[in-house]
């Protein structure tokens, strides 16, 4: 058992909130991010499978409007899609792909080049 530490009584918001220009109600994404992914985990008597919660957040990140639709799309797809895993990796990836496609097209005689470049080449 730790000794009760001698911390000053804090009055957190009194100072800070007065300065804050925006009155709280935060957007749902920010709240869910914190209450589902952050915060202390203590095992309660009611055991909720954390994996369930994780799946849930993934579904939410997929499409907040429709959890069912997200389920239809499949979870693995999300996990492996760098575009959604982190935005920055997604951008880099997209750029690399674009460059490769352009190189291929420039090299000349790919039969798809004639179509004007709007095709979804996956080579």
């Amino acid at each position: 058992m730790a000794e009760p530490t001698n911390t000053p009584v804090s009055r957190p918001y009194s100072a800070a909130v007065g300065e804050s220009s925006r009155p709280q109600p935060a957007n749902l994404a920010d709240i869910l991010e914190r209450v589902l992914d952050k915060g202390i985990i203590i095992a309660g008597d009611i055991r909720v499978n954390l994996l369930d919660i994780e799946l849930l957040t993934i579904k939410i990140r997929l499409l907040i409007v429709s959890v069912d639709k997200a389920q239809e799309m499949g979870i693995d797809w999300w996990r492996n899609d760098p575009m959604l895993t982190t935005s920055e990796r997604g951008l880099a990836e997209e750029n690399r792909e674009l460059r490769e496609r352009i190189k291929t097209l420039e090299a000349g005689d790919s039969p798809t080049a004639a179509s004007g470049g709007t095709g979804k080449g996956s080579s």
């Binding site: 804090s10 957190p12 709280q24 709240i31 915060g39 202390i40 985990i41 309660g44 009611i46 909720v48």
Partner: peptide
């Protein structure tokens, strides 16, 4: 539930040091 949980945590944090619990920690 998330909004209520968060509003209670905010209220607690306005009076003292606070360790927020993850959503849905339930005891009998």
């Amino acid at each position: 539930v998330a909004r209520t949980h968060d509003s209670v945590v905010h209220a607690v944090a306005s009076v003292g040091p606070t360790a927020p619990l993850r959503l849905a920690t339930v005891y009998l």
